[in-house]
Amino acid sequence: MGTLNVLNITNGTDTVATGYAINGSAKAWVNLTQVSTQTIGDSLNVSSLTDLGTGQTRISFSSNMSNDDFAGSFYTMASAGENSSNFGNHYAGGFGDKAVASVQAYSHNGSAGVDSGVLDIIIMGELS
C-alpha cells in the first residue's frame, strides 16, 4: 500500500488542501437494525455493536476518535419497518454517552425506547 504525500488536490480548475478531504470525511459509519437480533448491515471503522435494550445500541470504533467532542449524524426509522410506509421518524432519538472508543444511539418514540428497523450513523471528527 503506497502513500501519496500532497498538500493540495486539484481537478485542473479547483484546488483544495488535502486537509479538507481528510478532516471533512466520515471517520466511522454504520447501517444497522435494532429489530430481532440487532445486526450490522455495513460499516466502516466499527468493531461491534452492543444491544443494550429496547431502542438502545452502543457502537464501538476500531480506531478511536481523538476526543469525545466529535460530531455525528443519526437517522432512525423509529419503527420496526424498513419502508417509506413505516416512517416514524418524527419521533425523537439521538446520541448519548459519547466516548473516544464508542457512542450510544437511542431510538425513541417520545415516551420510551423503540427498536428501529433502520438506524444509520455517521461520525465526523478527528481520529486518535
Binding site: V30, I40, L44, S47, S48, L49, D51, G53, S62
Partner: peptide
C-alpha cells in the same frame, strides 16, 4: 437493574 447486553461483532471487523 439494567437488562443483559448483547455484543454483536461487526462483519467487516471479523473479516479483518
Amino acid at each position: 437493574k439494567e437488562p443483559a447486553s448483547v455484543l454483536v461483532p461487526d462483519p467487516n471487523f471479523m473479516a479483518a
